[in-house]
C-alpha cells in the first residue's frame, strides 16, 4: 500500500514527525469513510447494587473519526460510561455496540481481542513504576503477543509522536505529571486502535500540559481514530471547538456539534 507523504506538526515544543514514521498501519494512515457508526448506545442504564444510578436510558451514536468531549460534574458517571464501552462494566439494561460488537455479550478471548481495538487513557495513568517509559509502552504489545520486531518498529515512532523519545529509558517517577500522561497516551495508541477513550486525561494537569495532551489527541483524530475524552472542565472542552456531550442525571445531552 502506497503511503502519503504529508507531515504533521504535533506541538511547537515537540518535533515534526513524518507520517510514515508515526502511525504504522491503519486506521491512522487513511481516514476511513466518516459515516460508519462505531459506537451505539441504546437505552443504556447502569444502576449499581447500592442503588446509585449513573446512566438512565442513555442513547448515543458516534461515527468513525468523531472526536467528542463528555462533560459532567464529578460522580455523574463519565468513567462508568467509558468502562461500559471497553467492557469493564456491564449495563443494567440496554445495548452497547462498539466496532459492531455488543460489548456485554463478549467474554474471555473475544473480550480480550475486542479490547485490542480500543486504546484507553487513564486519569491516574496506571503506569508500571518499575518499568521504563519504553517498557511501559511496549508492555501493551507484549501482552497482546506481538512479535519483538513489530514492537520495535512501533515503539520509537509512538514515543516521538507524544514527544517522549528522549525519555524512553526514564522511569515514571522521573517524569512530570504531563509526561506521565503522555506515556499513558503512547501506551493507548501504540497498537493503533481505531477508538481511543481518554478518562479525564487532563484532570491532574496544568493548562499548558492539558493543552498539549489535547493536541496530541487531536492529531490522532486527524489520522482517523475516533476519540472520546471525558472531562469535568467545560472551559477546556469549549476551547477545543469539538462537540460536547454533557452527562447530566443519567442522560446524555449534545451541547455543540
Amino acid at each position: 500500500m502506497k503511503t502519503s507523504r504529508r507531515r504533521i506538526v504535533i506541538n511547537p515544543q515537540t518535533r515534526s514527525i513524518p507520517l510514515e514514521n508515526v502511525a504504522p498501519t491503519r486506521p491512522f494512515r487513511q481516514a476511513p469513510p466518516p459515516k460508519e457508526i462505531i459506537i451505539r448506545l441504546q437505552d443504556v442504564s447502569k444502576i449499581y447494587p447500592d442503588g446509585s444510578r449513573c446512566l438512565i436510558g442513555a442513547n448515543l451514536n458516534l461515527k468513525r473519526g468523531d472526536f467528542i468531549f463528555i462533560t459532567g460534574t464529578s460522580g455523574t458517571g463519565k468513567s462508568t460510561l467509558l468502562k461500559l464501552l471497553y467492557g469493564e462494566e456491564t449495563p443494567s439494561s440496554g445495548q452497547i455496540y462498539v466496532n459492531g460488537s455488543e460489548v456485554h455479550e463478549l467474554k474471555g478471548d473475544h473480550l480480550a481481542k475486542f479490547r485490542r481495538r480500543i486504546g484507553v487513557v487513564f486519569q491516574d495513568y496506571k503506569l508500571i513504576p518499575n518499568r521504563t517509559v519504553a517498557e511501559n509502552v511496549a508492555f501493551v504489545l507484549q501482552a497482546q503477543g506481538r512479535r519483538q520486531q513489530e514492537i520495535e518498529r512501533r515503539l520509537l515512532p509512538t514515543l516521538k509522536m507524544v514527544g517522549l523519545a528522549h525519555k524512553a529509558d526514564a522511569f515514571p517517577d522521573q517524569l512530570s505529571g504531563g509526561e506521565q500522561q503522555r506515556v499513558s497516551i503512547a501506551r493507548a495508541i501504540v497498537g493503533t486502535p481505531p477508538l481511543v477513550l481518554a478518562d479525564e486525561p487532563t484532570g491532574n494537569l496544568d493548562l499548558e500540559n492539558a493543552t498539549q495532551i489535547l493536541r496530541t489527541l487531536e492529531n490522532l483524530n486527524t489520522y482517523g481514530a475516533t476519540i472520546i475524552v471525558t472531562t469535568h472542565d467545560h472551559h477546556l472542552a469549549g476551547l477545543s471547538g469539538k462537540p460536547i456531550v454533557e452527562l447530566r442525571q443519567g442522560q446524555l445531552y449534545w451541547q455543540k456539534r
Binding site: G108, K113, R115, I128, V140
Partner: peptide, 12 residues
Amino acid sequence: EIMQLVGATKVW
C-alpha cells in the same frame, strides 16, 4: 489490570 484492559487473553 493493564494487561486485561489492553487485550491480553486470560491464558496469556
